[in-house]
Design a protein around this nucleic acid. Structure first.
Length: 137
DNA sequence: GCCAACGTTGGC
DNA sequence: GCCAACGTTGGC
């Protein structure tokens, strides 16, 4: 099983929107690296759901429920989507600032490659962040 | 609102 | 194939 992080602007599509919908197509990816990551996702892989913008950070956990297929919103080009469903909101919001302050998380793709909207997360990073979310801050 | 980091485009 | 110009993302 692999872990990923997907970014979204909450004004466009938020964690609450995903919970309301129940499941959703992850569409609109128009970056090759991000697309290639989407294509590596397998059913059952877990995603960190990240809000960018005013209050950047990780909000919740989602799961891949359908592997990649052509993006119906793409007018041209070879783009893909996967389907995801919400699993649970993190017990505690993990802000980008907190990730930046955590020594063990300095190698996260999130910090190395700030603009990539679909990115892999190492399993150590995934479990540490989950642990942090259970702690009081 | 600013600006750095990137990605893309297009001229040569 | 190089590189300047431009557009976009996203943190601050």
């Amino acid at each position: 099983m692999n872990y990923w992080l997907v970014k979204t602007e909450p004004e466009t599509f938020s964690w609450e929107d995903l919970e309301t919908k129940g499941s959703s197509m992850w569409d609109g990816v128009r970056n090759y690296q991000a697309r290639n990551n989407l294509r590596k996702m397998k059913t059952g892989d877990i995603l960190f759901f990240y809000h960018s913008g005013k209050k950047p950070g990780i909000v919740g956990l989602a799961e891949v429920i359908k592997e990649y297929y052509p993006d119906p919103t793409a007018k041209e080009g070879d783009w893909s989507v996967v389907d995801v469903k919400p699993l649970q909101k993190l017990k505690r919001f993990i802000s980008l600032a907190e990730i930046k302050q955590t020594p063990e998380l300095q190698n996260m793709v999130l910090l190395q490659s700030m603009r990539l909207s679909v990115q892999p997360v190492r399993s150590e990073e995934f479990s540490l962040i989950q642990k942090l979310a259970l702690q009081d801050q």
